[in-house]
Amino acid sequence: MIEFRNITKAFGETVIVQDLNFKINKGEFCVLIGPSGSGKSTILKMINRLVEHSAGEVLFAGEPIRSFRPEILRRRIGYAIQSVGLFPHWTVEQNIATVPQLLGWRPERIAARITELLVLLNLDAARFRNAYPHQLSGGQQQRVGVARALAADPDVMLMDEPFGALDPITRESLQAELLRIHAATGKTIVFVTHDMDEALRLASRLIILEGGKIVQSASPREVLEAPNSSFVREFLGKDDYGLKLLSLQLVSERMKTVDIPCSPEPVKPDDSLHLALSRMVAAKANRVAVVGPMGERMGTLFLTDIVT
């Protein structure tokens, strides 16, 4: 879907990105992560030409992005940013309708699409449709921001730390919703963040950046199991690295099909080991029952099996 070929970006004398090569496939949820100054936002903005690359070639759907007029390109790519950037003088409805209007959709089609998106993002249409942005909470604003980015059903969504300014609870619920939307629509998403937990939770592929170079590019699990440098290991977090690893591994991988009484609240096979450990610690037990979707007993997970 998107391909960077030998991309270099310099602002005057300072080189931000040098000779970058990578490919993002259709349907991937690709998270660009790195410390500030690693060039992650610049890379994202080079995709929709908010930042122009200095050398090399960026391909979008197989064509060099310079062969599109910037506006035409951008209308095919959804864009959501941390500060949301809702247009304060327009209602929620008008905000979401922006790109469809630019593309010249018919009014009925736009209205239907708005209803669809408000439902998709769990926004009560009756209450929010005609509200102005300042009447919404931060989380609601960002939901509208995401809806606006999705409005014209773009093939690709670019998201620049979209949940960075939200409180942890709101952020988690929006992350869950984004995962749901990704699963339901199969859109290609390129997501920038500096929060490793968020990255691990969302990504189907992580691209870890440092100083404008790719340090490692792999699935979250591969990164966690085999970090390829001390930088990556440190970035994953020295102290709770093990816990992060557990959160990507499933109960089904370690459970034994034995049936003995257990005191903690049971877990499901596709729950994470992190959750299972938490239940055991909470109940001061060294094992937890594994049950199926109907509550039928499937086996037991032992503490010793988690750590071996």
């Binding site: 910037p70 390109l73 095919r76 940013i81 500060s83 247009f87």
Partner: peptide, 17 residues
């Protein structure tokens, strides 16, 4: 707000729009 301008650019409005 710069955010509104960035969003407008990023969404595909022409400078005149």
């Amino acid at each position: 707000s710069p955010a509104a301008k960035e969003a407008a650019d990023g969404i595909g409005m022409t400078p005149i729009q």
